[in-house]
């Protein structure tokens, strides 16, 4: 059984006919070819598939595609606008916060969600915000520094969604 859904991804209107069992992650990767969002475990434990749902970070592998009906989704592909890197993206580069890069899109989306709800986050808030995003390469220090750097650069303004 399929469902017709209407939603936006990175501001673009989308329409899809999806099986009831399809995850949002598969919809993004397989139907919309937005492969920046990664699958690391498929059971909501690693955070590689983190996207924003109406501005809030969620794991796309645990959400059904039909639930996206009427919702606004943001993925890593929408982070840079007009070829200009976002403040967060530039901060990840400057702080050396990416190594193999597989966790990076999900990590940036979690950080983006944090800076929307808490533009001047404390250290503990940053750690809490990415506690569900596993990274095997960096040891997290540079990622925490990157998010701190982005918050400082934004000067307390919410990260532009």
């Amino acid at each position: 059984m399929t469902h017709d859904i209407v939603f936006t991804v990175n501001g673009n209107p989308e329409r899809a006919s999806v099986p009831a069992t399809m995850t949002l992650l598969d919809l993004l990767r397989d139907r919309l070819a937005l492969t920046g969002t990664k699958e690391g475990c498929g059971i909501g434990e690693c955070g590689a598939c983190t996207v924003l749902l109406n501005g809030k970070p969620i794991t796309a592998c645990l959400m059904l595609a039909v639930e996206a009906d009427g919702q606004a989704i943001e993925t890593i592909e929408g982070e840079a606008v007009g070829g200009e890197l976002s403040v967060l993206q530039q901060s990840f580069i400057d702080a050396g916060a990416t190594q193999c890069g597989f966790c990076t899109p999900g990590m940036i989306m979690s950080a983006h969600g944090l800076l929307l709800r808490s533009p001047s986050p404390s250290h503990d808030e940053i750690v809490e915000a990415i506690a569900g995003n596993l990274c095997r390469c960096t040891g997290y220090e540079a990622i925490i520094a990157a998010i701190r750097l982005a918050a400082d650069r934004l000067g307390g303004e919410p990260h532009d969604a």
């Binding site: 990767r29 492969t35 920046g36 592909e77 982070e79 890197l85 580069i93 890069g101």
Partner: peptide
């Protein structure tokens, strides 16, 4: 020097075999 691959990785443009 910043890593050459960083831009591909922060934008989701980096394609892995998974992709």
């Amino acid at each position: 020097v910043a890593r050459a691959d960083a831009v591909d990785k922060v934008t989701g443009a980096a394609h892995y075999t998974h992709d």
